[in-house]
Amino acid sequence: SFQQEMLEKAKELFQLCDKEEKGFITKRDMQRLQNELPLTPEQLEDVFDNLDQDNNGYLTPLEFSMGLGKFIGVEVLS
């Protein structure tokens, strides 16, 4: 299904951020992406805060997927 496809895509994108394969993304991981993405550290921090819904300082694959879903306009149910 489309949702399944999106979750797969989210997983791939998640792995681009989680280079050490920790299973979560920290703000530091995010800021490291400034070398690869055309975003400023402030923007990356903004993205992180936006995705970190429970404000625990870690982005889980689910939070990441939900962020991608919000971006694409699809609700991803847990």
Partner: peptide, 29 residues
């Protein structure tokens, strides 16, 4: 305005982020 403050356009930044990641994914296998 190039001096856009982070936080004012969260959704735009989010879109920019995901678009960049997506193009990175497809651009460099």
């Amino acid at each position: 305005d190039p001096n856009m403050k982070a936080g004012t356009t969260s959704e735009g930044v989010l879109a920019n982020f995901f678009n960049s990641l997506l193009s990175k994914k497809t651009g460099t296998p």
